[in-house]
Amino acid sequence: MMVYALKRAVLGLAIMLTISMAVFALTNIASDPAIAIAGEGATATDVEAVRQRYGFDRPVVERYAEWLGHAVRGDFGMSYRQQRPVARVVLERFPVTFTLACLALGFSLALALPLAMFAALWPNSMIDRFAVLTALVAQAVPTFWLSLLGILVFSVELGWLPVSGSTSFVHYILPAACLGFFAMPAILRLTRAGLLEVLEADYIRTARAKGLRTPTILVKHALRNAIIPVVSIASVQFGYLLSGSVIVETIFAMQGIGYLAWESVSSADLPVVQALVLVTAFFYVLLTLFADILNAWLDPRIRIA
């Protein structure tokens, strides 16, 4: 188990390193950062001055090594636009997005898991049809439309929830629900399909032959087997939620990293963009690692892999 976790961690580190290279390459090699910073209408001398000032004239490998060395220590340089340390800029925004993503994931799990369980218990029943239809609708409805509709109904008409902002918990309810609703179908479908398959398994029949009662069979024998793929998909979904909250944050004017990413890209604030991609990727890798370890705990067969 420990060996497995360590192996996974090393793999995660390797992935992080690759991502850092890709990020650096995209922002420094694919485009000329000096031209981007100098802005439109800059003369060749201006660009050259920028290049000298920011050290873009040095070899790429050297610049990458220096950047990575700083990044590991949490130093992502200065934001060109805000003239403040990048780390502080990102750190300020991060909790908003993190809270939003956690709440959204919690919302979609709370909705998907019970629905999937009842749907799998009584296939083709009313509740099964309702669950499948809900998944279909949730998958088809765009987040921005749902967000606007939510604002119209709950904020404008009913006046229950605030329209925008991110200052208190109630501000998170509507955006988290809209974001979570979009992440829900994948979890619901996977849990339902997994449970349906597991309930047909031979070991469920064995459990029944032992005389175990239905709730024990469901929770102990079926759910633990069915939940394994769900853990993987939930961690991936959480990654989507982290990076995919751009739209929701923009609509609800929440000062998260999604909003920050949009601002930074449009103003060529390279260090911020680099740091954002790297931090998001880091969380993604961390989540996958967590999911892998959780799965190994759930399923002993994985531990040997």
């Binding site: 398994a201 031979d202 070991y203 064995t206 459990a207 024998h221 633990r224 087997n225 002993p300």
Partner: peptide, 10 residues
């Protein structure tokens, strides 16, 4: 089927 009659995770 003894291969599948036991629950793999316990």
């Amino acid at each position: 089927e003894p291969m599948t009659a036991l629950n793999p995770v316990y």
